[in-house]
Write a protein that binds this DNA or RNA. Structure first.
Lengths: 219, 219
DNA sequence: ATATCATTCAAGATAATAATTGAATATAAT
DNA sequence: ATTATATTCAATTATTATCTTGAATGATAT
């Protein structure tokens, strides 16, 4: 049945789609969008055994979604391409538009914590020039270290309650994390609002900021 | 393992990706991008039994990729959304960039028949205003009937050899068909060049023309 | 060389998906 | 009402994907 070049191409395209067709692999891709990562770190964060994570990574590699390099005894994986992020965005866009369940989850969880419009990247750029805004990165420190918004303060969500003193109550805060579906910034917004801070979320997360060609610091 | 809202969302996104993860379903989507179609017509064109095509269509519907309506005793399917076309474009983009096999097929088949740059939609629009170009739709007549480029001539590829007289040899010809992976326009270009016609392909196909907001005729 | 650590491979159990067949609905025509 | 047609459902079998476990590879450090 797979005669014809069109059929052969569609078979290839389908193999890419199948590689995206797993909750775990999508989550792995979200983490890789932050920057390079080893197998063990990914396995732990996604909640897989190392052997299993390794197999998922190889499926992603065969599908051309990730690439890898060896660094000493570690193997570091990364997204193959900026286009991969675009593909994931297109996927979530279609799912959001057409699957009622997605809408239900969004309203029930996300809108509950922050129903405000997120701050656009352009708006944040303009406001940081005035210096009256604190950019807050609530991801774990190792992800912050690989790359973050210029001038951002890193307080991981888990430490937020105990480090409130580091935040200037007179500044508006703009919080961000891994991307549009990362819960960290939503939790941070809810927690900080309850403490009286003026805080909004940045649209999307670091990978999308970087993909937009905006500057990233990795000191 | 699927606690958390992020996991729940990714599970939904993955279900959309799995629906795209089949050669046959991608081909069905290509046909639906031309316009509404019944189950039997789709089954025949994609080379599936009717029952099987019906099941694939329902997977696509569950994934929010297609919608359907009943018209008398026929059930007509269509793409759920313009965003679906964008998702397929993103999918083929990633596959083209990162899978060597895709490149091999393209060079071996497509570039062999037409290694020239395709005509962009903008260029075609400009040239049709001068009236010196014949726009040639080489899809089957029923697809042409559902929608085609303004002023296009419909000669299905299968009848091209016998209807060469209808083409003015002084006009440049711009041929198009279903989309970037449809072989019809490539075959048409190769056949017409061999006959001495000046002919190029339009970039992509009718669905992308429509998605760009350009006018479509369906007389 | 040997030991150690990170990663991958291989084998097997379980679950999900695909295609086929024949029966069941739902609408239209007689 | 009955018949015909289009589509869907249900049951079956074959194929493919997932996860687990334990062993094998590759690179570094002792």
């Amino acid at each position: 049945m797979s005669i014809g070049p069109k059929q052969a191409l569609y078979a290839e395209f389908a193999s890419v789609a199948r590689a995206l067709g797993s909750q775990h692999r999508l989550e792995i891709l979200e983490h890789l969008a932050q920057g390079e990562r080893g197998v063990e770190a990914l396995a732990e964060r996604v909640g897989l055994t190392i052997a299993n994570a390794s197999q998922h990574l190889q499926q992603l590699r065969r599908a051309g979604l990730v690439a890898s390099r060896r660094d000493g005894k570690f193997v570091l994986y990364r997204l193959a391409d900026e286009a991969v992020l675009g593909l994931m965005a297109a996927l979530s866009d279609v799912a959001q538009r057409n699957l009622a369940e997605v809408d239900r989850i969004r309203r029930h969880y996300f809108d509950d914590r922050d129903s405000m419009e997120p701050v656009s990247r352009e708006e944040l750029l303009a406001r940081t020039r005035d210096g009256l805004v604190t950019v807050l990165d609530v991801r774990p420190p190792d992800e912050f270290a690989v790359g973050h918004l210029p001038g951002a303060v890193n307080i991981p969500l888990s430490e937020l309650e105990s480090r409130l003193a580091e935040l200037d109550p007179d500044h508006e805060i703009v919080a961000y994390c891994r991307g549009p579906w990362c819960v960290l910034s939503f939790e941070a917004v809810a927690a900080l609002r309850a403490r009286g801070f003026r805080v909004r979320r940045l649209e999307d997360g670091l990978p999308e900021w970087r993909a937009a060609g905006l500057p990233v610091e990795n000191a």
